[in-house]
Nucleic acid binder design. Structure first.
Length: 864
DNA sequence: TCGTTGCATGTCTTT
DNA sequence: AAGACATGCAACGAA
């Protein structure tokens, strides 16, 4: 950027690294936004007013109308759309609300809804000497700003309005202070019908049961519009936008606005590289019809709603709800019913932000009655109220039991709140928790059996949801739903504690794949020569440095059959064919292609056509997908660690080769590898090769020997137990159970200090397995947050536990039909095929406390 | 005794 | 650390 100073005259901020990435440009790259004032720069050009031309966005993606810089001067307002491009403000707004109503005309909408915002633009234009609407001047703008702020007080959470001690009348009186007259003066009169500043008081006091229509009408829409891009944190900021102009004295305020905007945008899908999508595309279902609707930013909630409350609803459902196409359904929010919500107590806890944003303001604890219509058209009256909670409020809908019951909802189901415009009638939909929720394909994309759809007799739609949300909400929903479906007793702890520990099944699969991919990329550290050691006739390379990640390659199949490997040059990005078994360093270029002298330079053309290459790439992706889809259970089941594989190989002989990739080399893929870590696991050589003398007493050798022995004993024991098991009848099993209880009791006593699954074997063998549970890992686990490495690490724990599971499951089956760890795990594995357990959940499920690494009581019992 | 109400508290999430 | 939320529980009133 050539300019060193923001060209916004009211800003003048120096251009620093603080400048943030703005909207995507069609030409590639992003506009830059001045942090303090939000002015936009594209390619170094101040573009608050003509960025459209510069960026190439020339039409409203929603209505298709041509946009140009003059749009601003001619009362057009522009808004950056989540999916890329820009739209008329009105269209964007409607789209944002996921209106089923198609905007027919431009000017009308603008004149009604956006006049207030226009002034910003007008001011901005004035700054730049562009055409400005005649009827707006800066003084009026200044006038506007004050009401905006004043009104924003109205929009603030009620608790921030200091209504605690104020009488209702007083409070209402305060609310009326926002002078619509001021706003309206000099601006489009069309704004006024949307503004009913004093209505709340009247409604509150005079109408026993507040009609939601009134509620909605009471919402000061123009102000809300103004708050778009403002402190409310709406990710959809307006363009051109120069809040330094709006609030020139507090440029930092704007700064935070853009911060919020940017932050919010991060979780949104990137705009298509294919350019803008036309409105028709949007509405014809080319994109999934069901979507996560970012709710409208309105009301008094300053905090943008959490994604978990974003309504998921299909256009079809919206249409169904609206009844006629003239209506506009505005999905507001949704909530997964908790046990309390669905219980007999009849109180539905409302998310505070949602309550304050979409429901009428209440100043007194008793609140007010709220009429909400269900999808059958039946109207319910709930008491919308709040409880003081700490220094905050807790909003509830009381009297929801009949409604909940009529909908046959239970914990885990979801209720959705929408609004029908015009009229502002609140509509309550619902979505039953179904198994399909747990089968949502990874990445949050895929079919979602929407119970509201079911209810409405509609076809399923696709639900697209950010992965972040999936982890949280989906998992939570899944758990609750599972419990609900299974009719299991739902405990508070499980429900709440597991909320953030559960991982959506498919996400877990994806994570596993990612992990596997990462493992595949592990390479010995460069420029570090290993020392070769041999342990039990196995060669090991020992490195002083942790492994590094190598270059990613793809594998394909030749038309003639046979595997091939492809890698992309880091310099020219051309793909080169490689031998199937080579491992590449992190950086690899054509010049490193020692296998094909004709293509060892970037100047050499690619061996195959782009189409063929595409097929290969696709093949690689499909292969990966198929790996999961065809055998998700495989993904659930842990691979044996390298040492396990060693032990297995020792026990099973060559049969272990059937296991697949399990080999000595797998040793290098231990999930606990951490850069810089020198634990026993991490210092194992990446290649698995190396020789130690049989008399070597180094830590590695001792550990490997010990673990090797442990595993062999475990394997043997397992085998013998299986044989024995097959010969026993139930009665004999019971008798034997008691015997083993005694025996294991003794073993357990010897291994009383043991903590991990490795010690399960120890409990059996009396051996100590350092490799299973290096002490330092305890520290690591406790000291670290959930960073990725940690996550990888902990995610692997249940995998290793599976070894234990296999080892003790047979024991369990002999001893306890239910309630034992083995059966518990097995049933988990069977029942929750689609779900991977996080280590926390796993540990919790077996009564294992992480901090102390207490031996799970169930396990202990099972071994007795 | 049971149900309701209002608040308190613990846990979880977000900042 | 603060805030939000789920739920426990005591107080109260009605049956």
């Amino acid at each position: 950027m050539e300019s060193k100073i923001c060209m916004n005259s009211s800003c003048g901020a120096a251009i620093t690294h603080e400048w943030t990435k703005g909207w995507p440009l069609r030409s590639g790259g992003y506009a830059l936004l001045c942090y303090p004032c939000g002015s936009a720069y594209e390619d170094g050009v101040f573009c608050n007013t003509f960025h459209l031309e510069e960026s190439g966005w020339r039409e409203c993606r929603l209505c298709g109308n041509h946009l140009h810089c003059g749009c601003i001067a001619s009362n057009y307002l522009l808004e950056i759309l989540d999916f890329g491009g820009v739209g008329c403000f009105s269209c964007a707004k409607s789209s944002q609300l996921h209106s089923v109503k198609r905007i027919q005309t431009h000017g009308d909408e603008i004149s009604e809804g956006a006049g207030a915002v226009l002034t910003n633009n007008a001011r901005s234009n004035a700054t730049e000497g562009e055409a400005v609407s005649d009827h707006v001047d800066e003084r009026k703008l200044a006038q506007l700003c004050k009401p905006m702020e004043a009104n924003e007080c109205n929009l603030l959470p009620q608790t921030q309005r200091g209504d605690g001690n104020a009488s209702l009348g007083q409070h209402r009186g305060e609310e009326v202070i926002c002078p619509v007259e001021k706003v309206g003066a000099g601006f489009s009169n069309a704004m006024q019908p949307n503004v009913r500043p004093a209505n709340f008081a009247k409604i509150d006091n005079a109408i026993p049961a507040l009609d939601v229509r009134d509620i909605h009408d009471s919402l000061p829409q123009p102000y809300l519009s103004m708050s778009v891009g403002g402190p409310s944190g709406n990710p959809n900021f307006l363009l051109p936008f120069s809040s330094g102009l709006v609030d020139g004295k507090e440029p930092r305020k704007t700064w935070s606005t853009f911060q919020q905007g940017q932050q919010s945008r991060r979780i949104l899908p990137k705009p298509s590289k294919n350019g803008p999508t036309t409105s028709s595309e949007l509405n014809k279902g080319i994109i999934p019809q069901t979507r996560i609707t970012r709710p409208p930013v309105e009301g008094r909630g300053k905090n943008h709603l959490l994604p978990r409350y974003w309504p998921r609803i299909t256009d079809q459902e919206l249409q169904k709800l609206s009844g006629d196409l003239k209506s506009t359904i505005v999905p507001l929010f949704e909530k997964v019913l908790s046990a309390s919500d669905a219980g007999r107590i009849g109180r539905l806890v409302l998310p505070k932000a949602c309550a304050e944003a979409y429901f009428p303001p209440i100043s007194q604890s008793e609140g007010l009655p709220l009429r909400i219509q269900d999808v059958n058209g039946k109207e319910w009256t709930f008491q919308f109220r709040f409880w003081p909670n700490n220094n905050s409020r807790m909003y509830v809908l009381e009297g929801v039991t009949p409604c909940i019951q009529s909908m046959q909802l239970r914990a885990g189901d979801t209720v959705t709140f929408s609004r029908i415009d015009p009229g502002g009638k609140l509509v309550m939909g619902f979505r039953k928790a179904t198994d399909s929720d747990t089968q949502t394909p990874k990445g949050g994309k895929g079919l979602h059996v929407n119970a509201l759809s079911e209810h409405l007799g509609l076809s399923n739609g696709n639900v697209s949801r950010g992965r972040d949300e999936n982890h949280g909400d989906g998992a939570n929903g899944n758990l609750v739903q599972q419990l609900a479906v299974n009719g299991e007793k739902r405990t508070r702890n499980i429900g709440s504690k597991s909320k953030r520990l559960l991982m959506h099944s498919v996400d877990a699969l994806e994570l596993r794949l990612t992990w596997e991919e990462a493992q595949d990329l592990l390479r010995p550290p460069p420029s570090v020569r290993p020392s070769i050691v041999t342990i039990e006739d196995h060669e090991f390379e020992e490195y002083d440095e942790p492994p590094v990640f190598g270059k990613r390659t793809i594998f394909g199949t030749r038309p003639s059959g046979g595997q091939e490997q492809w890698a992309q040059c880091d310099d020219c990005s051309k793909w080169r064919r490689l031998p199937i078994d080579v491992l590449l360093p992190p950086k690899w270029t054509c010049s490193d292609n020692v296998w094909d002298s004709s293509r060892c330079a970037c100047s050499a053309p690619e061996e195959i056509s782009p189409k063929e290459l595409e097929n290969i790439l696709k093949m690689g992706t499909d292969l990966k997908k198929a790996k999961v889809l065809e055998n998700p259970k495989l993904a659930l089941e842990p691979e044996p660690s390298g040492l396990d594989a060693l032990a297995s190989a020792a026990v099973l002989g060559d049969k272990m080769s059937d296991v697949g990739e399990s080999s000595v080399a797998v040793t290098t893929k231990h999930p606990r590898h951490r850069p810089g870590c020198t634990c026993i696991v991490c210092i194992q050589p990446p290649s698995g090769k190396g020789k130690h003398k049989s008399t070597c007493t180094c830590n590695v050798c001792l550990t490997v020997k010990r673990r090797f022995k442990t595993l062999m004993l475990r394997k043997k024991k397992r085998q013998s137990e299986r044989e024995a098991e097959s010969q026993k009848d139930n009665k004999k099993q019971m008798e034997e159970t008691e015997v083993k209880h005694t025996r294991n009791d003794h073993s357990e006593h010897e291994a009383s200090q043991s903590r991990t699954e490795g010690e399960v074997a120890e409990a059996i063998t009396g051996e100590i397995d350092l490799n299973c549970h290096p002490k330092r890992e305890d520290v690591q686990l406790e000291g670290e947050g959930l960073n990725m490495m940690n996550f990888f690490e902990v995610a692997r724990v249940p995998v290793e536990n599976h070894i234990m599971q296999n080892g003790i499951a047979s024991l369990k089956s002999e001893q306890h039909q239910e309630g034992s760890l083995g059966s518990h795990l097995q049933s988990k594995a069977n029942r929750e095929n689609e779900r991977l357990l996080s280590d926390e959940e796993f540990l919790a499920s077996v009564g294992w406390e992480r901090e102390g690494h207490e031996e799970p009581s169930s396990e202990r019992n099972g071994l007795q």
